[in-house]
Amino acid sequence: MYHAKYIIPALLVFLAVVTFPFWAKGKAVYRVELKLPANQTECIEDTETMRTSHMQILDHWRDKVVREGERVYTNAKGVKYSMSLTNTCMSCHSDKEKFCDKCHNSVGVAPYCWNCHLTTPKGGK
């Protein structure tokens, strides 16, 4: 083998970088546990829709409220809700850190909702 003194260290560094996630892993078991509201069993839509589309619903709400002044959302079952992140969503999911942040932080998603929005109707962060 020629130039082993350069090639072997470079190869070892490469292997270390490639396998980095294996030895850098944090907790042995990765699990996200959400604190679900105690007094409610149903969200505005079914769980699967909320999981895949909550961001689009909120985006849609923002456009409706801010641009068109429309504030009432009717869900698939015909129940009406006020289009408000702070007053509707967060009246049940009151603790952002134990609900929203759980998933978002664990996979590195940083939505910009709370750049503007308060986390409780009364104020405070």
Partner: peptide, 27 residues
């Protein structure tokens, strides 16, 4: 690497932020 490292390092979140900096659409 956000799916392979727990917790997600800040530098990876920074790259993610820069990569989606135009904030087009949701997601």
């Amino acid at each position: 690497m956000r799916l392979f490292l727990d917790p997600v390092p800040a530098c990876i979140q920074k790259i993610e932020f820069l990569d989606s900096i135009l904030q087009v659409g949701i997601p």
